[in-house]
Amino acid sequence: MATVLVILHGLVAIALLGAITHQTLATWAPASSPAGSFFGRFRAVPSASFANAIVLLYVATALLGAVVYLRFKVDIQPYMERDRHWRALGFFDLKEDFVAIGLGLLPAYWTSWRRPLVDEHAGTGAALTAVLAFIVWWGFLVGHVLNDMMGFGS
């Protein structure tokens, strides 16, 4: 069951990673990009339309991660401590902290992309998107590395 949850957690995280990376690049890519170029086509997608999906995917990923975390604490962490993977555990601690702070940011992120306020807070929305993108990438990479080091069933 735990393995199924980890795989599901990873799959939802990949969907979130794709959505937030697309929105971040679309928001921050230079506006002068030619229409037919890669970034030009990226920017043609309305960034605001990603906001609802990103909020739902973030919450789903965090909930699945929280369930898996219970098993990690009991079945994995003691062995990582035995094998002295202190840095990996430190990076994982940061992942928990960043994900929690990201959860607190979601209402502000969502409202900053919501019309009619989206034009008033374009800069804030872009900055919040970048912070969330950093959190998602950090969580994904750290989770992936830890799973490679000592995944379930190892």
Partner: peptide, 15 residues
């Protein structure tokens, strides 16, 4: 309104 991303960024550094 920028405090809404400055505060979390500072919180992440504190973490």
């Amino acid at each position: 309104s920028g405090w809404v991303w400055v505060a979390p960024a500072a919180a992440m550094l504190s973490c």
